[in-house]
Computed example of a mutant assay.
Amino acid sequence: MTAVTLGPEGTYSHRAARAIGDEIDFRQSVTAIVDAVASGEYDRGVIPVENSIEGSVTESLDAVAEYDVAVVREIVTPIRHALLAQHDGFEVVASHSQALAQCRSYLEDEHPEASLEAVASTAQGVERAREDPAVAGIGHPANAGEGLQVLAEDIQDQSSNSTRFFALAPESERSEGGGKSSLVVYPNANYPGLLLELLVPFADRDINLTRVESRPSGARLGDYVFHIDVAAGMYEQRTKDAVADLEEIAENGWVRWLGSYDTEHVVE
């Protein structure tokens, strides 16, 4: 099976994608990955959804709300950041914006003079460091070699740093089996108590919400789409009933069930 994820080779997304794909291809944006899966070009796509330090990856949330895809698995992997450079005389630290944020305290304390440069992926920052002796990258320590050395390991601000990824498939592969489910709700309304109304169907059925987040709909200022993850599968009648209630509340908008799935922990 061929999977597509954020490239180039060596990103944390690449490490997560190896758990589901025999062959891995790359794209430079999350939206391009989701589009490639929705169109049937790829069997699977792997995108980062949430980091334990920096929170949700907003491009991922917006993309799964826009395209018809299925979430078929959740992959959780620890993030071990290392500072990689040709030598310790670098002037710039280049990495993905999330990685730079996850190492903010370390960089401020140990390299306050270095300029920070956000690039498309951690692997791209490592390649910049490999090409330019004035640049250091942040990435997995296994990306060292070929002229790069590990100047410091485990530089993330929290030792528990981890990222959850969604494994995506075409919409036709949505499954009701699994211990978690993800939904996107667009009520197309705004009134006091709306969010409470959206949550009550789950509380009434003793369904635990593992994540609730709002994103701008793009239609108008103050108009929101809600992303909801619950610790229950759609095969359960209580989940079906809760979603039916949601659809009544959002009768002027829509409810999209992304799928039910299990979680896999990948440690490398």
Results as ranks from 00 to 15, higher is better:
Tyr186Arg: 09
Val230Gln: 05
Pro8Ser: 08
Gly139Leu: 01
Gly21Lys: 01
Gln237Met: 09
Leu84Ile: 08
Glu9Asn: 12
Ile79Gln: 04
Glu9Val: 13
Leu209Gln: 08
Pro216Asp: 10
Leu195Pro: 03
His265Ser: 12
Ala129Ser: 09
Asp245Trp: 00
Arg80Leu: 11
Glu171His: 11
Phe26Asp: 01
Glu153Tyr: 00
Leu198Cys: 04
Asp223Ser: 15
Val37Lys: 01
Glu197Arg: 13
Asp88Asn: 13
Glu113Tyr: 15
Arg27Met: 11
Leu84Met: 05
Val126Gly: 05
Ala203Phe: 14
Val135Met: 05
Arg220Thr: 14
Asn252Gly: 06
Glu59Gln: 13
Ile75Trp: 05
Glu213Val: 13
Glu197Cys: 00
Gly137Ser: 07
Tyr224Ala: 13
His96Gly: 15
Leu83Ser: 03
Arg174Asn: 07
Gln149Ser: 12
Phe90Lys: 06
Leu84Asn: 00
Ser95Lys: 04
Ala144Arg: 10
Asp109His: 09
Gly218Trp: 11
His227Ala: 13
Gly218Asp: 10
Ala82Phe: 03
Ala36His: 03
Val71Asp: 02
Ala19Trp: 03
Cys103Ile: 00
Asp223Lys: 06
Gly139Ser: 12
Val49Tyr: 12
Gly137Val: 07
Val92Gln: 07
Trp257Met: 07
Gly145Met: 00
Gly40Arg: 06
Ala242Pro: 00
Val71Gln: 02
Gly21Leu: 06
Asn252Leu: 12
Thr163Val: 11
Glu236Met: 00
Thr122Met: 10
Asp88Ile: 07
Glu74Ile: 01
Thr58Phe: 10
Ala32His: 02
